[in-house]
Nucleic acid binder design. Structure first.
Lengths: 110, 110
DNA sequence: GGTCAGCGCAACCAGGAGGTTGCCCAATGA
DNA sequence: TCATTGGGCAACCTCCTGGTTGCGCTGACC
């Protein structure tokens, strides 16, 4: 279903956003269900705050994460729908392959 | 399990390989379970054979696809294990998020 | 009010990604 | 044998990406 309308967030853009170890790390940290500020996420990352900001923008652009300004800080939290969609996409590819293989096998064996 | 030992193929590299519409298209075509040559895959893609070759190298490097030289042509076919691994990774992230949310909710409500 | 912490914006830079062209090599098949 | 077909290799180009630094702004706190 994915009702929350991830329009424009193509699977490619989601995969691309996940295709970076730093961003995967950020996603891992954000998957604790809590909100995190930028400096908090920067902590322990051997990167500038600006670099982390850019990564968060990429994640946000892919719909993996949402930003919310609270006072002087930007809070980010995960939006798991995009992840679910990406997983569904992979499931579909897998299924397609499985079925194709089954058909080929059946065609040979009969 | 994923016994075929996809060592070195980090999730990030798999996601990165999938993070391109052309490569997603190639994966879609290859998920018919058959082997395809390069010129065959180039057909209808508005790209040079060389460009497609590079994309296939990326897919191969991520373990999504294998090459086999037969006569004068290179045959490619899908290796679905990498896809399954990527999907499992996303499932793990989703589960982690679900559990975290459940814990937070329980902590609030009691 | 002044200071500090948290960010945003813009400029800049090096390296990699995606793509092309040109050339050459090996199989294939008439 | 010889033309054709499928590919590999290398050079080259452009644009995007990941990263930095510098600066200025605003909210929090004493």
């Amino acid at each position: 279903m994915s009702r929350t309308s991830l329009r424009g967030r193509s699977p490619a853009s989601v995969f691309s956003a996940l295709g970076d170890t730093t961003r995967l790390e950020l996603v891992a940290r954000l998957s604790d269900g809590k909100q995190h500020s930028i400096t908090e996420l920067t902590d322990g990352l051997a990167l500038t705050r600006q670099a982390v900001t850019k990564h968060l923008q990429v994640l946000s652009g892919a719909g993996l994460v949402t930003r919310k300004r609270i006072g002087r800080e930007s809070r980010f939290d995960m939006r798991p729908d995009a992840i679910a969609d990406a997983r569904d996409y992979l499931t579909r590819v897998s299924d397609q392959w499985d079925q194709a293989i089954a058909r080929l096998r059946a065609a040979v064996e009969e």
